[in-house]
Write a protein that binds this DNA or RNA. Structure first.
Lengths: 334, 334
DNA sequence: TTGATGCGCTAAAACGTTTTAGGCTAACCA
DNA sequence: TGGTTAGCCTAAAACGTTTTAGCGCATCAA
C-alpha cells in the first residue's frame, strides 16, 4: 500500500499541489488562500491521515529537524539520563534526536559525524574526544551549529556546556583535608579528555594549597577499556600497599569497582577511611554506609545545551562561542 | 559552503551522473564500465571527500538504512543496555538506530510511530504498550517489518522476542517455598502489559501448585508514574502491616525503592526475610547483603532481535511471525 | 478609460539521487 | 553485404516536497 502524497490530496481537493503545500505549512493566510479552500483541504488531510514525507521535505529545504547527539556510551547512566532530558526538551520544540555512542573510539566518532552529515542533521551535540578536531572544524566551517558538552576540545572554538570539574574536585579534596585526612588517593582513568584532567588538576591544587606534597603513587590511572576485574585488582593493590585515609573516584563506574574492591578485601568505610565519587549513582544511596558523591546538575546541563542549540538555529549568522560552566553539588552522605 | 553533489563529480571526471552512480553503488562491473573510468572516478571521489546525500538517496529508493527503536525510557538501565547492544549489532550490518522513549504514554508512542514512518525507517523495534495496536497493524499492513521485544501485544501478529517472564517468576517463588517461606509478597506495577501480568501469573501459579492460597493483600500494585517517595511509603506500609518472609519485586526500580523502604524501617534481609528482584542492577551486587536477581540475557535478546529484523529486510515477502522466548537466569546472592 | 493594486490561485523548477531504456561503435557471423 | 551482439556509456524520468514567479480577474483611483 503506497502512502499518500501531497499530489493525492491536491487531486482530491481539486486544487494545485502548491495550494496544499501552503496550507500544510501554515502559509495559507500569507498567500491569501480563501477560508473555504483551507477548510476543505484540511478536512481531506485529516480524513485521509496524510503525513508529509519528511525525506522529500528535507531534500528540498535542506534541513531535517533532527539534532545529532554523539556521546561516549548510551548505557552509562550519566549519558542516558542526559540523553533522555535532551530528548524531552528537544521534542517539545519540534526537534528529534538521533544519538549514537562512540565508545571513545576516534574512528567511530568520525564515522558518526559523517553519517549525521550525510543525513543533514540540523545541529550536533557532542561529547567529544581528542582526535576529531578537524572533523568538527569542518562542520563549523560549513555553518553547522555544534555544541560540546561534558568535555571540551580547547583547539576548537565552539560553545561548550559542562560542569565545573576543577572546583568540584578541589572542594571534595578540601573537604577531606578539613576532616583531617592526610593521605588522599585519586582513582582516575587514562583517557585524555579535558574533563578528566581538570578533575585531576583540582586534586593537585587542593593538596598544594594545603601544603601537602603531591604523591604520584597515590594516583591510580585505569585504562579505559580494560576488564572490570583487572580494575578491581589494581584498586585492591593500591589500598593494600599504601596508607590511605580518603579516596576520590573520578567517575561513578570507577567508584563502583572501588566498592567491589573494598568488599573483597573487607575494608570498611568509616571515620578513618572516606570516599567520594564523581557523578552520583543509584547504588550509592543504597550502599551501607551511603556513599558521598559529586552530582552534576543534569537538568540544567540539558537545558543549557538545548537553549544554545535553538539560539544558533534561529539566528542566521554564526553566534560567538559561549562557555557555560555549571557548578556541581557535593552530596555528603552518612 | 555547499557540499558536493554527484553532478560535481561527474563534471570533474567528464562522465555522466549515471556512470558515477553505478560506480558508487558497486554496479560498475555489472554495467560494464571500463576499469579506467572506474579508477578515475574513484580517485576523484576519494580526493574530494564526496559523500552521497542520504536524503536524496532515501527519497529515490524508499529506504533509509535506519531502524527505529521505540522503548519505554532510555534512562532505564535495562533499555539503555539493550539499546547499546542493538546499536552495536545493527551498526556492524550497516544500519543505524534512531531511538525514542514513550514514557508509557500512548499518545507519545503513536506520535513516534508517525514520526518514524514519515522518516521512512526500514524497520521498527518496539517495546509496545497497550493502545497502539491499530497503529502497529497499519505498519504491518504497509509491509514494514516490526519486532516487539520485552512485551508482547497479543492482538497483533508480529514477531516477538522476550524473556520467559512466567517461568522466571514461577521459579523464584518456588525457590522461596523450597526455603520454607510461607508468606510471600509481590510488589508489581499497574501498567497493563503482558510481561508484567506474566510475572504476576507465575507468582500465582507457583503458590497454587504448592497449595498456598493466593492472598491479594500480599500483592502491592504501584502506579507507574507516581513519585518514588509515595512508592516507598506504600512498600513500608506493606512490610509493617503484613507478616511477610519473602518478596519478589517485579522490576529493578521497584526493588530499589523496596530497599530504600527497608532501610527506613530498619528491616534486615536475612534468614527470615528474603527478596528477589526482576532485572539485575549494579546496586544489587554492591548492597549488603547482596541482592538476588533474575537476569535477562540482554546479549541474546539483542542478537535475536537483530537477526529477525535482518531476515525480514532481506526477504521479499512477509515472513511468518516468530515468538522467541528466552530463558532467564536466577542469580542467587549471599 | 486606463493603469495600478490586491486577491486567489497555480505551473514549473529545484533539491540529489537511482534506474530504465536505449544510443553508438566496433566486432563478429553467415 | 547486412544483421546481430557486445561493450561502454548516457539521457531523462522519477521520488515528494517547497517556493518563485506570475496569471487572470475584479476593484479602485484619477
Amino acid at each position: 500500500m503506497k502512502s499518500l502524497s501531497i499530489k493525492d490530496i491536491a487531486v482530491k481537493a481539486n486544487v494545485s499541489i502548491t495550494t496544499v503545500s501552503f496550507i500544510i505549512n501554515g502559509k495559507a493566510k500569507e498567500k491569501s488562500i480563501s477560508e473555504a479552500v483551507i477548510e476543505k483541504v484540511k478536512k481531506i488531510i485529516e480524513e485521509s491521515g496524510y503525513k508529509p514525507n519528511q525525506i522529500a521535505r528535507s531534500l528540498r529545504t535542506g534541513n531535517s529537524n533532527i539534532i545529532g547527539l554523539i556521546i561516549e556510551d548510551i548505557s552509562n547512566s550519566f549519558f542516558s539520563r542526559i540523553a533522555r532530558l535532551i530528548e524531552d526538551k528537544a521534542y517539545k520544540r519540534g526537534y528529534k534526536i538521533i544519538y549514537s555512542s562512540t565508545e571513545n573510539n576516534i574512528d567511530k566518532a568520525k564515522e558518526l559525524i559523517n553519517l549525521f552529515k550525510s543525513r543533514k542533521v540540523d545541529a550536533y551535540i557532542i561529547s567529544p574526544i581528542k582526535g576529531i578536531e578537524e572533523d568538527v572544524q569542518m562542520l563549523l566551517d560549513d555553518g553547522n551549529p555544534v555544541i560540546f558538552f561534558d568535555r571540551n576540545l580547547p583547539d576548537v572554538k565552539t560553545s561548550y556546556v559542562g560542569a565545573d570539574h576543577f572546583n568540584a574536585s578541589y572542594q571534595s579534596i578540601q573537604g577531606f583535608i578539613d576532616q583531617g585526612k592526610k593521605n588522599i588517593a585519586l582513582v582516575t582513568t587514562d583517557i585524555n579528555v579535558a574533563q578528566i584532567t581538570e578533575r585531576h588538576d583540582g586534586y593537585k591544587k587542593a593538596l598544594e594549597d594545603n601544603g601537602i606534597t603531591y604523591d604520584d603513587s597515590l594516583v591510580l590511572k585505569i585504562h579505559f577499556n580494560q576488564e572490570e576485574n583487572e580494575t578491581i585488582e589494581q584498586i585492591k593493590a593500591l589500598f593494600e600497599h599504601r596508607k590511605i585515609d580518603a579516596v576520590l573516584f573520578v567517575t561513578n563506574y570507577l567508584a563502583i569497582s572501588g566498592l567491589k574492591a573494598l568488599k573483597q578485601i573487607d575494608k570498611k568505610i568509616g571515620d578513618d577511611f572516606a570516599i567520594i565519587a564523581y557523578d552520583d549513582h543509584e547504588a550509592f544511596e543504597l550502599h551501607t554506609p551511603r556513599i558521598s558523591a559529586i552530582q552534576q546538575p543534569l537538568e540544567e546541563i540539558a537545558e543549557a545545551i538545548i537553549k544554545l542549540i535553538l539560539n544558533q538555529l534561529s539566528s542566521k549568522g554564526k553566534l560567538p562561542a559561549e562557555e557555560l560552566i555549571i557548578p556541581t553539588r557535593l552530596v555528603l552522605r552518612d
